[in-house]
Design a protein around this nucleic acid. Sequence first.
DNA 1: AGCACGCCGACT
DNA 2: GTCGGCGTGCTC
Length: 652
Amino acid sequence: MIVHVALPLPLQKTFSYYVPFIWEPFAKPLARVKVPFGNRMLTGFVVGVTEGGDEGLKEIADILDIFPLIGEATFQLCAWACQYYLAPIGLALKYALPSRFKVEKYLSVRAKAEQTRHLDGLTLKAAYTFAGKQTVWEYYRAEMVELYDSFTGSSFAPLEESGITPGYQARLYVANVERRKEEYLRVISETLEQGKNVLFLLPDSHTVGDYFCRFVTQSLGKRVVWYTSSQPKRQMETFFRARAGEGYLILGNKSAVLLPVGQLGLIVVERPEEDEYRNEEAFHFNAVRLAIKSAEMQGMPILLGSVSPPLDLVNLAQQGAVSLTREELFSQTKLSELRVESGKRGHQLPAELVSCIDQAVQENETIAIYTPRRDYASHLYCLECKKPFLCPDCETPLTYHREGDKLACPSCRKSLAYDETCAQCGGSLIQFSATGAEYVEEQLSAALQEPRVLRVTGESIRKKDAHSFLQVAQTPGTIVIGTQILSRLYDLRVKRLILMGQEEFLRVAGYRAHERVFQIFRNLIDALRPEEVLVVADKTSLIGAAQLANEEGFYEEELAKRRQAEFPPYVRLFLIEVEKKTRASGQRVVAEIVERLQAEGLGSRMMGPMLQKRGGLRWRIVLRGDESSVPPVLSWMYGLSGVRMEPDPPSI
DNA sequence: AGCACGCCGACT
DNA sequence: GTCGGCGTGCTC
């Protein structure tokens, strides 16, 4: 017997191996097998079985699963994801099981016959060492033993899926966090009462995740389980409960979307616009896209909640593919804006702003200031030789950190001392721009009398716990200065919120800049629930108080622009990156790609190639596909050495 | 992806 | 003469 195996490598092809007679009954599609590959051992998934003898093939080294652990629905979803994201099936299937996966440790044997009495109660692992793996598996096949997992105690068997039910319905709920919580809890409870499981996707585990976990646990208690790779044992428990149990609420982030779940009845997604749903390593996917497809394929409802949904979802709503409910976000919020002179970035905080903050501090208010960057300044520029400060190793622009008076390279993490002179010409007229939280803190310290400032960044939250921050932040008279992380702290409430630095997004976020600013600002208001919001903007800024308040109008306008420019969600973008050490080898591959694209009639849908010097040499080509399908040429490109393909890149 | 192999230019 | 970087091809 021969099995065809999909390996977790960026290769589209499968590899065939011979299966010795004794293992034949277990070599079924989707079982995991250990195989020799070159000079290493890899674990892959059986994707096909054919009759035949050892025709010079290598033998499989081991079979890991007594029966396949992945059900049909999960497999179909992986298969769909692979064609949509141009990934090999072996990589996708790997994501469907817990990262550090040890079944034998958590499964135990229950004897069902006199001859197997001696194995009763042993873990599967112990039973293997005692009686041999082959013997135990034969007992299982002869129904002389059964298996149960140590968490639920219930019998371990192939996954029973609900099959396709006619209940697909995608619903986008645009409302503030209090209303979303009510709505989530209502639909979740309804589904759990029917004895079905619910999958609840959250963008992270430590802020938004933790908040919703505490909320749902209040009313659902032990029905709530977490699926997270940072706690392997807990992840294993959830894995078993998801397949055996009934009526569990499974919380998880992006990788939970591929978890095999029995009797899944509903999917909920909190804040589908968050970037954390994008998987960047090995196999690129967006968990929200997969969640919608999963609900559609299995015929179940999906509820997506946010105050600032991603544009593609709003587009689907306009087409009638998703139903949309909107609620007012600003009934208790006063919005205003402060227009400042443009072109003077990074010199001084506007005087009006300083006096506004000063007044708030005098009145003992809680106040939060948002700025997109955490450091002091992200760009340094020598006014004498007119050159930016670049990393001597990799030529990436250096950032400046006040703490320690250091220059740092964001790309290679090199750290350099800063001596207030230009490394190129020795000049001392240095301009700082793209300033961040450290800078704002310094400016306020200079302008106000002993201000109480708390700087909050993603990193500082990860080091301490969020709760200890909140205690300080809640103290009246405190000025909280923070980056995007502030939009995740639902437990922090402020009287006044100041939104600065949106110009920075025009530089880094490309075509999504306005969408991102809109989402971050609205999510900050959603999380912090301020009574007053002040948008600091210059003449180039697109998001003012009016845009923030008029959500429907903003989306309409932004979608019109995207349609006009032929950008997502009306087309799909594919970023093709060629990385080589020498110019000649790179140009050869790039020329081959360009030629092939032109031959396929895609020349006019191609942008680039553009050459970038970052360490080695990097060429980038962007291809516009149509809304849903993937141009077939791309699968040819996949697997060329030094060529990377990124579907739906966040910026280009 | 990871690895072996073969090609070149550089250097004690 | 040989060491090391780089490109190419292969893995059942």
